[in-house]
Lab assay of single mutants.
Amino acid sequence: NQASVVANQLIPIQTALTLVMMRSEVVTPVGIPAEDIPRLVSMQVNRAVPLGTTLMPDMVKGYA
């Protein structure tokens, strides 16, 4: 099973992502693949992302 990127904390809207905000976890449905974590650093979320939420491509500006 492929690991996805999951929020390690509440990430407020417009926040630039850092490594400490994300973790990898095998979840359903599958979100952004964990191997993309380095690419996500400094990208902004376009909505508030609660703790434990799987990051989906449409939540990160410039990802999809």
Rank of each mutant, 00 (worst) to 15 (best):
N1H: 12
N1K: 08
N1W: 12
N1T: 15
Q2D: 13
Q2I: 09
A3V: 07
A3Y: 13
A3W: 10
S4A: 03
S4I: 02
S4G: 04
S4C: 05
V5K: 00
V5G: 02
V5E: 01
V5L: 03
V5F: 04
V5M: 02
V6D: 02
V6M: 03
V6L: 09
V6Q: 03
V6R: 00
V6E: 02
V6P: 00
V6G: 02
A7I: 04
A7K: 02
A7E: 02
A7M: 04
A7Q: 02
N8E: 06
N8R: 09
N8Q: 10
N8A: 15
N8P: 00
N8W: 04
Q9F: 14
Q9Y: 12
Q9N: 07
Q9I: 11
L10Y: 15
L10A: 13
L10T: 11
L10W: 13
L10C: 15
L10R: 11
L10E: 09
L10G: 10
L10H: 15
L10S: 13
I11A: 01
I11Q: 02
I11F: 03
P12A: 08
P12R: 09
P12Y: 05
P12N: 08
P12M: 07
I13G: 15
I13C: 15
I13F: 14
I13Y: 14
I13L: 14
Q14A: 15
Q14E: 15
Q14P: 02
Q14M: 11
Q14K: 14
Q14L: 14
Q14G: 12
Q14I: 05
T15F: 05
T15Q: 08
T15M: 09
T15P: 03
T15I: 06
A16K: 09
A16C: 14
A16H: 15
A16M: 12
A16F: 15
L17M: 14
L17Q: 01
L17S: 01
L17W: 04
L17D: 03
T18P: 01
T18F: 04
T18G: 03
T18L: 07
T18S: 09
L19E: 06
L19C: 10
V20K: 13
V20E: 07
V20N: 15
V20G: 11
V20S: 15
M21Q: 02
M21K: 01
M21N: 06
M21V: 03
M22I: 09
M22C: 04
R23W: 04
R23S: 06
R23G: 06
R23N: 05
R23Y: 05
S24G: 11
S24E: 11
S24A: 15
S24T: 15
S24M: 07
S24D: 06
E25H: 08
E25Q: 09
E25I: 06
E25D: 12
E25C: 08
V26A: 09
V26Q: 10
V26G: 04
V26N: 12
V27K: 07
V27M: 05
V27E: 01
V27I: 06
V27W: 04
T28P: 01
T28A: 12
T28R: 05
P29V: 05
P29L: 05
P29M: 04
P29I: 05
P29H: 04
P29A: 03
P29Q: 05
V30K: 08
V30E: 14
V30I: 14
V30Y: 14
G31Q: 02
G31Y: 04
G31K: 02
I32A: 01
I32G: 01
I32H: 02
I32R: 01
I32N: 00
P33K: 08
P33H: 08
P33Y: 08
A34W: 08
A34K: 05
A34F: 06
A34N: 06
A34I: 07
A34P: 05
A34T: 07
E35Q: 12
E35N: 14
E35P: 06
E35A: 11
E35V: 12
E35Y: 13
E35S: 12
D36M: 14
D36G: 05
I37C: 05
I37G: 03
I37M: 13
I37N: 00
I37A: 07
I37S: 03
I37E: 01
P38H: 15
P38V: 08
P38R: 10
P38Y: 12
P38I: 08
P38G: 12
R39L: 12
R39H: 10
R39S: 09
R39E: 06
L40Y: 02
V41T: 06
V41M: 08
V41E: 06
V41A: 05
V41C: 11
S42L: 09
S42F: 11
S42T: 15
S42C: 15
M43R: 08
M43K: 08
M43G: 01
M43T: 02
M43I: 04
Q44V: 14
Q44D: 03
Q44P: 07
Q44S: 14
V45D: 03
V45K: 00
V45Q: 01
V45H: 02
V45L: 11
V45C: 08
N46W: 11
N46S: 11
N46E: 11
R47T: 13
R47S: 12
R47P: 02
R47D: 07
R47N: 07
A48N: 15
A48E: 12
A48G: 07
A48V: 12
A48I: 13
A48L: 12
V49N: 02
V49C: 06
V49S: 01
V49D: 02
V49Q: 03
V49G: 01
V49Y: 03
P50S: 13
P50E: 13
P50T: 10
L51Y: 14
L51C: 13
G52V: 03
G52R: 03
G52D: 07
G52M: 04
T53D: 12
T53S: 12
T53P: 01
T53Y: 12
T53G: 11
T53A: 13
T54D: 01
T54Y: 03
T54C: 05
L55P: 01
L55T: 01
L55N: 00
M56D: 04
M56A: 06
M56N: 05
M56S: 06
P57A: 11
P57R: 06
P57M: 06
P57G: 07
P57I: 05
P57W: 10
P57C: 08
D58C: 15
D58I: 09
D58Q: 11
D58W: 14
D58K: 07
D58R: 07
M59Q: 03
M59P: 00
M59S: 05
M59L: 05
M59I: 05
V60K: 02
V60C: 02
V60F: 06
V60Y: 02
K61I: 15
K61F: 11
K61C: 15
G62A: 12
G62Q: 09
G62W: 10
G62K: 06
G62S: 08
G62R: 06
G62D: 13
G62E: 09
Y63V: 04
Y63E: 01
Y63M: 05
Y63T: 03
Y63H: 04
A64R: 09
A64V: 10
A64E: 13
A64N: 11
